[in-house]
Amino acid sequence: DVEEQIRRLEEVLKKNQPVTWNGTTYTDPNEIKKVIEELRK
């Protein structure tokens, strides 16, 4: 469920934690926001 994935990513973003997505770890909040934007398409 895309909405659920977006919610999880936004939670991690608020906590300033790194996100691992498709084998890539993102630590930059701007990169995480880009992943969220991609999911919304």
Rank of each mutant, 00 (worst) to 15 (best):
D1Y: 11
D1R: 12
D1L: 10
V2M: 08
V2S: 04
E3K: 09
E3F: 14
E3D: 10
E3T: 10
E3Q: 13
E3L: 13
E4Q: 10
E4I: 09
E4G: 08
E4K: 07
E4R: 09
Q5R: 04
I6Q: 02
I6F: 02
I6D: 02
I6R: 01
R7W: 04
R7I: 08
R7P: 01
R7F: 04
R8D: 07
R8G: 07
R8S: 09
R8P: 02
L9R: 00
L9E: 00
L9D: 00
E10D: 04
E10L: 12
E10Y: 05
E10K: 05
E11V: 05
E11A: 09
V12N: 14
V12P: 03
V12K: 14
L13H: 03
L13E: 02
L13I: 13
L13K: 02
L13S: 05
L13V: 09
L13T: 03
K14E: 11
K14Q: 12
K14P: 03
K15V: 06
K15W: 09
K15F: 10
K15G: 07
N16T: 07
N16K: 12
N16R: 10
Q17Y: 15
Q17M: 15
Q17N: 08
P18N: 12
P18D: 14
P18G: 12
P18E: 14
P18C: 14
V19I: 14
V19G: 07
V19W: 14
V19R: 00
V19Y: 08
W21V: 15
W21D: 07
W21Y: 13
N22D: 13
N22Y: 10
N22L: 10
N22P: 12
N22H: 09
G23K: 01
G23H: 03
T24D: 05
T24M: 08
T24R: 07
T24G: 03
T24H: 14
T24F: 11
T24P: 01
T25G: 03
T25S: 05
T25D: 06
T25A: 03
T25Q: 05
Y26E: 01
Y26T: 02
Y26K: 00
Y26W: 04
T27A: 06
T27R: 03
T27D: 10
D28T: 06
D28H: 05
D28P: 00
P29M: 14
P29Y: 07
P29R: 04
P29I: 09
P29D: 04
N30D: 15
N30Y: 10
N30W: 10
N30H: 11
N30R: 09
E31D: 14
E31W: 02
E31S: 05
E31G: 03
E31M: 09
I32P: 00
I32H: 00
K33C: 09
K33W: 11
K33H: 08
K33L: 13
K34S: 08
K34V: 05
K34L: 10
K34R: 10
V35H: 03
V35E: 01
V35G: 00
V35W: 03
V35A: 05
I36H: 00
I36W: 03
E37K: 06
E37F: 04
E37A: 12
E37H: 08
E38V: 07
E38N: 09
L39R: 00
L39D: 00
L39P: 00
R40P: 00
R40E: 04
R40W: 07
K41S: 09
K41A: 13
K41L: 12
K41W: 05
K41E: 08
